[in-house]
Amino acid sequence: MELFLMQLLNGINIGAIYALIALGYTMVYGIAKLINFAHGEIIMVGSYTMFICIATFDLPVVLSIIITILACALLGVVIEKLAYKPLRNASRISLLITAIGMSYLLQSVFQLIFSANSKTFPQVINVSNVEIFNVTVSGNQIVTLFVAIFLMIVLDLFVRKTKTGKSMRAVSEDSGAAQLMGINVNRTISITFSIGSALAAVAGILYSSSYPLINPFMGSTIGIKAFTAAVIGGIGIIPGAVLGGFILGIIESLSKAYISSQLYDAIVFSTLILTLVFKPSGLLAKHKKEKV
């Protein structure tokens, strides 16, 4: 029982991180109809930025976090402007290939600067462990869960209640009609990229706090899993990303403990295949009925 609870907690912990990253994939897909494969690399860049701020410049933790978030948000916007915006009217496949290229470009640049060797991520979360029902909950897990849920609530309120959030939903539904309302689609896309990348920055810090070895390729595995989570929940659907993230994290952690510590990735991706077989557009996808 204790083992189960412990693994469940681990699953929720990594699931919360997947969910934060999946939100970025799903929001960008919803607005720009683009799978941003460079999104995983934002996590890596975030981890390195945090590492430099603390290990090299010895900055205070809070300031480092703010710098990391801002740097990643900016990077997201710049990537969109440089790589994706010129292709706004190109075919989907060109965009997809560009996104993959962008992902490799970032990996290679960071490999050139920092070498392929892993660096040890500094300890930034100093919260002590808590014991609940004989199960130790680490400070990292508490902070991860708290931060992730807080950000999800803020994002949900932002998208549903604010004018910018409503314009994002409008663009996602029908960008042409949104323009006829006077909504600047390019600006909305930039905002979406910056929010998604800021969430990825936070996810990067949380992930590297739990798994403190960082290297230029760390983003690709986490990225592809978070993308899987977004697809399982239904790409383009915000609550779907959260649900998919937690489901994937819990499945991963439980199969690591109970089935096989080597096959767990295969099990995780089988979940995706099963979902696609039985609910091709994702768990939370609704069939759109439109009257004409």
């Binding site: 029908d174 006829l180 439109e290």
Partner: peptide, 22 residues
């Protein structure tokens, strides 16, 4: 397009294109 709206030239598009999920 979004700047033209500010000049008070407004279009009701074909097939209405209301935002169905709002």
């Amino acid at each position: 397009a979004h700047e033209i709206v500010r000049k008070h030239l407004i279009q009701v598009p074909e097939r209405r294109r209301v935002f169905a999920s709002q």
